[in-house]
């Protein structure tokens, strides 16, 4: 793999890998280190990577394993990065009251997703946030297609129930 091929095939995945790592370790700096280590590993294992059909899934898997190792080696305290990510200024024209309500609802969804079992969380993130196919998710997480579908179905089912409950009883 030349440096040009690396820039074309591997480097553009940085944000996808970064978000995936960030949601696992919940620390921007640590997530950044994980992505850097993943990419250096990809560069060092060019021969292996050349034989792999889906380079993106390979990188995702490496990222996931590195992130899980970091979580294991250190007890992580969940910090809330969502406040920084959700920029209220984007919706200047909206009604402030409505905006606060929307923000609260989104925070509720975020917290609800975080309480889902790990596998459901990861499958939901890879599908609904990153837009990966079922096969790509299976490759990235080392699970079969059936497990991908089952976990996604359960995650969405819980989400739907949560939305219905909020609508019926409020936050």
């Amino acid at each position: 793999m030349s440096i040009e091929e690396f820039k074309q095939d591997i480097l553009p995945q940085k944000n996808k890998l970064y978000r995936f790592a960030y949601r696992l370790v919940v620390d921007e700096e640590e997530a950044k280190d994980i992505v850097q280590e993943t990419m250096i590993k990809a560069w060092n294992h060019q021969a292996t990577l050349d034989e792999v059909d889906n380079k993106e899934a390979w990188c995702m898997r490496v990222t996931k394993n590195m992130a899980l190792d970091k979580i294991k080696s250190k007890r992580h305290q969940t910090t809330d990065g969502f406040k920084e990510g959700f920029d209220v200024q984007d919706h200047k024209e909206a009604n402030p009251g409505k905006l606060t309500e929307l923000k609260d609802l989104m925070t509720n969804i975020k917290n609800f997703i975080r309480q889902l079992p790990d596998k459901q969380q990861q499958v939901l993130q890879l599908r609904d946030i990153e837009g990966l196919s079922y096969k790509e998710i299976g490759d990235a997480m080392d699970i079969d297609l059936n497990q991908v579908k089952v976990n996604l179905f359960r995650a969405r089912k819980s989400l739907k129930e949560n939305i219905i409950n909020i609508n019926a009883y409020g936050l």
Partner: peptide
């Protein structure tokens, strides 16, 4: 259903390198 899809969209943009 809007908050869910707004959230999913927002999360796709944050964080980034």
């Amino acid at each position: 259903h809007a908050p869910l899809f707004k959230y999913l969209q927002k999360e796709n943009e944050y964080p980034s390198l």
